[in-house]
Simulated assay, not measured.
Amino acid sequence: MPTHERATEEVWLKPVFIAKAGREAELQEALRSLQTLSRNDPGCLEYTVFSDGERPGTFVLFEGWVSREDLEAHNQEVHVTAFVEAVEPLLAKPFTVTSLVPLVISPRTP
């Protein structure tokens, strides 16, 4: 098995959000709320928002899901669909999402 193939179906993503000038605090608060709610969604392994220390107004989300089905269910949740709609006017450009694949698979400890 190549090193990039997963023994499980876990899905890891890195969405990046860039605020319009003057809208940084609003975007940060919306992301903070999304983080709080999303961490309770079934299958959530990780859901943490970071502020990019070198690019003010840029926020990076690191999220992990047990399976693609869990991610798809999360994306249909009201708190996610409402977030996507609400932050559109706060963004300098549409947010991007990068799929991440671990190079080394470490077993999870209970």
Rank of each mutant, 00 (worst) to 15 (best):
E63Q: 15
F50L: 14
L27N: 13
G57R: 05
G53Y: 01
I18A: 14
P102F: 06
P107G: 03
D52I: 08
L91R: 00
E72R: 11
S33L: 02
R23W: 04
A86I: 03
V16Q: 14
A30C: 02
A25R: 03
A86S: 08
I105L: 01
E54C: 04
P42G: 08
L100D: 12
A30E: 05
T81S: 09
L13V: 15
R23P: 05
L100V: 14
P110W: 00
T3A: 04
P94A: 09
L103Y: 11
A19I: 03
K93E: 09
T3H: 04
V97K: 13
L37C: 05
D41M: 04
T81W: 00
L45N: 02
G64Y: 08
D52N: 14
Y47Q: 12
A82C: 02
V11N: 08
A19Q: 00
I18S: 14
G57P: 09
S99Q: 01
P89N: 15
T8I: 05
V60H: 15
L27S: 09
W12R: 00
S33C: 02
G64A: 15
G22E: 05
E26P: 10
S67T: 14
L37N: 01
K93Q: 12
L103C: 08
L103I: 03
L37E: 07
V104P: 05
S51Q: 13
V84Y: 09
T48E: 14
L91M: 08
N40K: 15
A30T: 01
T48I: 13
Q35M: 02
E24L: 07
E46W: 02
V66K: 04
H4R: 06
T109F: 02
L31M: 11
L91P: 01
F50N: 15
E5Q: 01
L91E: 09
V16I: 15
G43A: 00
T48V: 15
E72S: 09
V11T: 10
P15D: 03
M1N: 01
R32S: 02
E77K: 11
V60T: 14
P94T: 14
S33Q: 09
M1G: 10
V60P: 13
A30I: 01
P42T: 07
F83Y: 11
P110G: 02
E77T: 08
L90K: 08
Q35R: 05
F59I: 04
S38H: 09
F50T: 13
